[in-house]
Design a binder for these strands. Structure first.
Length: 501
RNA sequence: GGCGGGUUGGCGGAGAGGUUACGCAGCGGAUUGCAAAUCCGUGUAGACCGGUUCGAUUCCGGUACCCGCCUCCA
């Protein structure tokens, strides 16, 4: 049996993981609000919990793990986008436009997360499909004295939950002292939070015992996890920024609604993402989406590798340097496993690393050692547990070769070959150095001369926009960005030939 | 103000109270016209100050600095 230990935010200790029901291990992870493309930070919990999902499937069997990740499709920003389309003259109803916006965002999310090698969860519930369950849960909370109705709002009575604040290590009194809470006249206590609020006629709303309205943010996860996973389940995950108030409120709602149950046993939180040492934000100008990166030609597998190289409980810094190293490593590994089939099982050492609170950095070190030993089959089966070296994520590692695209390149190469043949090493080395400066590597192999240029080197030659960000398009053979980068290299190659004359 | 995370060799990044993390880069060697690739070898680093200990980078306390959350932003 695979031993799994996980750090539980609730107890602040690393605990042996023992599922409530080994025949059905259950995990809930907070998913995205579907108003726009997922940014790079959104990918972190997805990758972290995808690895946990894979590990649990390995340990308990693929058919014995249920993974739920929700889509929040009730949100002001979604409404705003839909309203903007309506204002622009779209004749459809607001409801239709909202549905269109959330549908397209979900489709993008699936594309982008799939490109990073993530499995699709067992269930991906949308909040709007569970309004009935939310209303029922809210009604139960009112009946139990844990919530109250005021001016069309239903509020959760924080004081009715004696453990409120236990997850995040806060007390209600301390938080009120901090006085950063919204003061609303209809609240009994400043910390009370909204379960249901009225909705104006021109915005989405649902009929309820408290009038037409919509649910508060937190109740959806309580209602959907209960519906799909039951009163008590094994793991609840999400970003550390959700620890308070979202998860604290989820616990309060669920525990008060189902006091006989234990809700989530283990709480796991991933730390946040940074970019080049700084918080990713629009104001700093370092904000980008997963799609931006993919379109610039950074392979999804490279992105995944970089994420896995830092333990989930630490802030992860995305840097271009890391991406380059990851690309080089993966290129090497992919060359090693090409044509081999995976071994039956992953390496024990790698499973042990993952079982130790998802030590993915340690797991990558194990892969390095397996690679050095030359055991391609074991490397494949082991990397597969991390979602790496899979067929779906492959293909990017193919390198462009001379005859593929440019006469100028072929000419430079033939000059190099003839200089070498003539033992004119001064000229040969000069050509090589100039080519190297452009990002090309020329190599003598048993099969003849090979010319290679990596994605990042090619990226350097992309036409730049005014913001100095690379223009986007997939970096594949025959794709516009590839062609643009290559054609911008041609004059530079001609310049080399010019010098040689 | 409250709560939480971090600080490891040139860079990235783990584990372990005392024995090589690992990767990249660097250096030395093999091979190569030179390279590339590959292979072999090579690095007493642990923010600062105390304490516990035979021994701490690893445990405890404090200081400094960085970061996150407390505002439906993962």
């Amino acid at each position: 049996m695979t031993r799994i230990r996980l750090h539980n935010t609730k107890t602040r200790t690393k605990e042996d993981f023992a599922p409530i029901d080994p025949a059905n291990v259950r995990m809930y992870v907070c998913g995205p609000t579907v108003y726009d493309r997922a940014h790079l930070g959104n990918a972190r919990p997805v990758i972290v919990f995808d690895v946990l999902f894979r590990l649990l499937r390995h340990a308990y069997g693929a058919d014995h793990v249920t993974y739920v990740r929700n889509f929040t499709d009730v949100d002001d920003k979604i409404n705003a986008t839909a309203q903007a389309r309506k204002d622009a003259g779209d004749p459809r109803t607001l409801e239709e436009l909202i549905r269109e916006r959330t549908d397209e965002t979900i489709r993008w999310y699936h594309e982008d997360m799939g490109a990073l090698g993530n499995l699709t969860p067992t269930h991906e519930p949308r909040a709007t499909d569970y309004i009935g369950q939310m209303i029922a849960m809210i009604a139960g909370l009112i009946a139990g004295g844990h919530a109250y109705e005021k001016e069309g709002h239903v509020l959760f009575r924080v004081r009715s939950c004696k453990d409120y604040g236990a997850l995040s290590g806060r007390s209600v009194d301390d938080m009120i002292a901090g006085a950063r809470v919204e003061v609303a006249p209809f609240k009994e206590d400043p910390m009370d939070f909204v379960l249901w609020k009225p909705s104006p006629d021109d915005l989405p709303g649902w009929e309820s015992p408290w009038g037409r309205g919509r649910p508060g943010w937190h109740i959806e996860c309580s209602a959907m996890s209960h519906e799909l996973l039951g009163d008590s389940f094994d793991i609840h995950g999400g970003g550390i920024d959700l620890q308070f108030p979202h998860h604290e409120n989820e616990i309060a709602q669920s525990m008060c609604a189902h006091p006989e149950a234990s809700f989530a046993k283990v709480w796991m939180h991933n730390e946040m993402l940074q970019v080049e040492g700084r918080k990713m934000s629009k104001s700093l100008g370092n904000f980008f989406t997963v799609r931006d990166l993919l379109d610039q030609g950074v392979p999804g597998e490279v992105i995944r590798f970089v994420f896995l190289s830092t333990h989930y409980s630490k802030p992860m810094d995305w840097t271009e340097e890391k991406a380059k190293q990851a690309e080089a490593t993966l290129r090497k590994w992919r060359a090693l496993v090409a044509g081999h089939t995976a071994a039956e099982v992953p390496a024990r050492q790698l499973v042990d690393y993952l079982g130790d609170d998802l030590n993915t950095a340690g797991a990558l070190a194990a892969l390095h050692e397996i690679a050095r030993s030359g055991d391609a089959g074991l490397l494949l089966s082991s990397a597969g547990l991390l979602g790496l070296l899979t067929p779906e994520l492959g293909g990017w590692e193919a390198v462009a070769e001379s005859e593929d695209y440019s006469d100028a390149l072929s000419e430079v190469v033939s000059r190099w070959v003839s200089a070498r043949a003539a033992r004119d090493y001064v000229t040969a080395d000069q050509i090589k150095a100039r080519m190297h400066a452009l990002g090309y590597e020329m190599k003598v192999t048993p099969d003849g001369v090979k010319v290679e240029i990596g994605h990042f080197a090619l990226l350097e030659h992309l036409p730049r926009s005014r913001s100095d960000s690379a223009q986007v398009s997939p970096f594949e053979e025959g794709q516009p960005a590839m062609a643009a980068a290559q054609s911008s290299l041609v004059p530079k190659l001609r310049a080399i030939l010019e010098v040689l004359k």
